[in-house]
């Protein structure tokens, strides 16, 4: 009745509706380091280079070395690995290769986000990993090989363990 004490919360309010499998599939695009979420399909460095030249080079430069503040606000895509130069690029700064796939698929090319098919994304990922000298130019990248790529910067990553208090760290 409307007179009942209603200040206690019910287990469920009953607002909202069950999400269908299809609704979930449409939006569930994330990729994890262990490969969870990677779609079927595959790509090569050569295919990736071809797509790159057409769809990416205008902003990131033919060599992927375009720097922030000039043509665009993004770090260079290509650099030598840890041993080499300093910019925070895929080659010397990214800890997981899966992130390259995830990021390109969700938001590149910047002016046409979400327009690439999965094979194109696998290929572009292969191309950028190769250009960064992380994989050899003839590696095929797919749901099995991508999570297996070891990124040079991974070993440098340390989780923040600060919890407040006096220490400056």
């Amino acid at each position: 009745s409307s007179l009942a004490d209603t200040t206690k919360w019910p287990p469920h309010f009953g607002f909202g509706h069950a999400a269908t499998e299809q609704e979930i599939k449409l939006w569930d695009i994330d990729i994890r380091p262990d490969g969870l979420g990677l779609p079927s399909g595959s790509g090569t460095v050569a295919q990736g280079k071809a797509v790159y030249v057409v769809k990416c080079a205008a902003c990131h430069g033919m060599e992927g070395r375009e720097l922030p503040g000039v043509k665009l606000p993004a770090p260079a895509l290509v650099s030598d690995t840890l041993a080499g130069s300093r910019p925070k690029t895929i080659g010397n700064y990214w800890p997981y290769a899966t992130t390259v796939f995830d990021y390109i698929r969700r938001t590149m090319p910047y002016n046409l986000p979400g327009s690439l098919n999965d094979n194109e994304v696998y290929s572009l990922t292969a191309y950028l990993l190769s250009a960064n000298q992380i994989i050899s130019p003839n590696t095929i990248i797919n749901a099995q090989t991508l999570p297996a790529v070891v990124m040079p910067a991974k070993k440098l990553y340390v989780r923040d363990d600060r919890k407040g208090g006096k220490e400056v760290k």
Partner: peptide
């Protein structure tokens, strides 16, 4: 980290 301005804007639709 944040550049003030660049020629980038023209690429953006």
């Amino acid at each position: 980290i944040l550049p003030v301005s660049s020629a980038f804007a023209k690429y953006v639709q």
